[in-house]
Design a protein around this nucleic acid. Sequence first.
RNA 1: GCCCAGUUGGCGCAGUGGUAGCGCGCUCCCUUGACAUGGGAGAGGUCAUAGGUUCAAAUCCUAUACUGGGCACCA
Length: 891
Amino acid sequence: MLDKTYDPQPVESKWCGAWRRSKLFGSQAAASSGPKPFVVVIPPPNVTGALHIGHALNNTLQDILVRWHKLHGRPVCWVPGTDHGGIATQNVKERQLKAENKTRHDLGREAFVSSMQSWSSECKKTILGQLERLGCGLDWDREAFTMDAARAKAVHAAFESYWKKGLIYRGERMVNWCVRCGTALSDIEVEYEERKGHLWHIHYPLKGGGEGLTVATTRPETMLGDTAVAVHPKDARYAGLIGKSLTLPLMERDIPVVADDVVESSFGTGAVKVTPAHDPNDFEIGGRHGLALIKVIGPDGKMTSEAGAYAGLSREKARDKVLEDLKAGGRLVKTEDHRHSVGVCYRCMSAVEPLVSKQWFVRMKDLAAPALKAVEEGRFRIYPESWTKPYVEWLSNIRDWCVSRQIWWGHRIPVWYCAACREKDGYKPQVGASQPASCPDCGGTVLEQDPDVLDTWFSSALWPFSVFGWPDQGPDLSFHYPTSVLVTGYEILYLWVARMQMSGLEALGQVPFEHAVIHGIVRDKKGKKMSKSLGNVIDPLVMMDKYGTDALRFSLAVQAHPGRDIPFSEESLTGSRNFANKLWNSTRFVLMNLPETAPEGGLSLKGFAPEALDLCDRWILAEYAQTLSRCRGLMKEYEVAAAADVLYGFLWDRFCDWYVELAKIRLQGADEAAKAAPRAVLAHVLTGTLKMLHPFMPYITEELYASLKPFVGEHADFLLRSGAPEPGSEWESAGAIREMGRLIDVVKALRTLRSEMCVPPGLRISAIAEGGESRDRDLLFKYGEYVRFLARLSELKPSHDGERPPHSATAVASGMTFFVPLEGVIDLSKERQRLEKEVGRLEVEAARLAAKLGDAVFMERAPREQVDLSRSQHADANARLGRLKDVLKSL
RNA sequence: GCCCAGUUGGCGCAGUGGUAGCGCGCUCCCUUGACAUGGGAGAGGUCAUAGGUUCAAAUCCUAUACUGGGCACCA
């Protein structure tokens, strides 16, 4: 016998291990010629610590899809893995070192990387273990890491192939430099933040004396590197100055006034200081006007020797000092408050410094074109569709991708330079995974590898095929590629999804996945992002301990509407835990009412012709069939939340609250033969529902299925090997649903009456039904037992000759009037009040419908069914009204 | 500045043409042989605003406001 409440822990550890040991999600999809498998590659979590709630959501959704497809008979392959995480991971390690007052340089590159390696493999273990605990049906034999040997091979192959095709180049460009992380970043690794700042107006005098002009800037310290001032060519104020020279204050350097269209005359003073080395726009202006590049800020964020007296100061200190000196020299004309957005590093949030430096870039235009075409031709679809447009726009305006990073943790760039030749003009380094024996130019054997590593996203971009052995063109690759669907958050749509599409198309000529399912971010209940500093994080592991894994999964799934963020609160877990308990107890009930041992072949449902079943049996089977088909339709569109909700409603409302209650009539009766039908129906419907719920709540459903399976004649070792609930359509019955609805209405009306008239719940009362259509009357008396049982009646009988018992309360439902004699209990004024309220409500409705039917345009233009519907609604309302008024009069 | 999404009962959300549903919360009643992590009943919404299309609008169109997001600019 099951316990009274569901205790998740023992059930979870039992099945978690069993699934793994039996290789339930093993390599069934291994290279073979079987049916096309459902393939998913995990968005590999960074090896920076433990699983957070966002991972829980992401992986729950994937697991739901994977289990769903497996349930429906498809081979599945979900590849587990982790990401080395480049800057993010190195930062965490560096913070640890900092706590010991050390930097990575104290360890040296080799020791640092090896300590990263051992630390990251610890994290890897933790994360994968947590994914397993979440119930994820991953193919554990395929575990991959973005920096393991197989993935390194793919990285080298991709780099080399890009190099050969001229898709990768090294060049000196303006890049986003994170001073704190000490590395270049790509454009999409920069986020923009509104920050309070100032706009300083600085006067630059004309060379040799004269008025000169005033520029406006938010970054005065960069003036030390100014090599021009730009104005709009049509700006009358400055027309006379174009071509003249100004004297740069503090540096006493001559700089020209140039005319350039990009200058906005209405902003600031209409004159812009130009610092080609430290501003992307200025860099372009400099290019157009042949201006010199003077780097005054170094990669360490300090002023360089070019900054004269300011050399060695930090950016911030230099700003203060420059302003102070300008003020002292009378050059600072004005200081205004100014809000502007500042680019910050997505990993450490410190202000990014635009800097000219030599980096590796991937040429993106030609890679983006096939990816765009794939969307256009529908070979790649994004769910929800609304993310398609931003995706297309980003690809259409793509810029070259800076892929070199000045950190140590990552794939070292596979490029080798000859020490003797590297400074020569037109020198071409050698590309390859291992060190070349000698330099082809000079035969020298002193070759140095590029010290930089690749952007972590470079290896991530190859993930959907590197995990299947690419560049080897084995059967494993051809069998699994392209994968079926990728599930991820919108925050990495460009960083990752787009790049996988591009590299997949480039490497294999086919999209890496046909569908991308984009989910939202899990936020706190107020809608704020969860963060350690805000202290609003919800730890999925703590939640699993507290409420059970299935509760956590269901709670996330039922809120995961496509593309929408989830305001998550711990309270939502209570509801899901209660639902798990409801499942547990409904199974407990069913098992209590089944024979002790299952007959050979189970309790067959096939033996009952539809007409041999009771109305409630046919009804629940019809509802069940409808639920299955709805659920399947929703899952096809990745409407996971809606599917979860449909199942929840069916199990709790229809199955438990109505069917189980009605089944008790026969199960608690003395007629043994009558128990066969409800037993078979209970077993089949519950088992099928558990199967459908399994992808959402794998543990509890697996456990309960194990007890139920003999009763439906199944012997599979695991639920997922038992086949999907089938069929459904043969049980569809609009008639059963309609008829049961009529009876439910009667029960509800009588319950309301009891509650409002304060009839003690234990007191059985009788009800007399009057009037109504013969169809409804026949139905009512045929299934009078339902009403008696559910409304707790002592008797339900028809009225004779319009007999109306005195001292009765009245309810109107399904076209009939029900009199409930309540002598001694009834409060007549209360009853009158109750009925008058109902009359008022109905009068409004009848009037509304009458107006509609009296509207000639409606009658003429509305479709026939609509007119008929309104007519019958009107007749219905009037009939009820008539009955109630009748009763009121006689009261 | 451009684009996208959202705005529905106290809270969180469903609902793509016939005047609204769910969960939580709230009120009242009930420990009845699956479950109090339960059952029954109830209160509570002119679906952001203003126009328009339509016989009919939460739903379609336009504008506005607010919120969130993407992109660009940001001297």
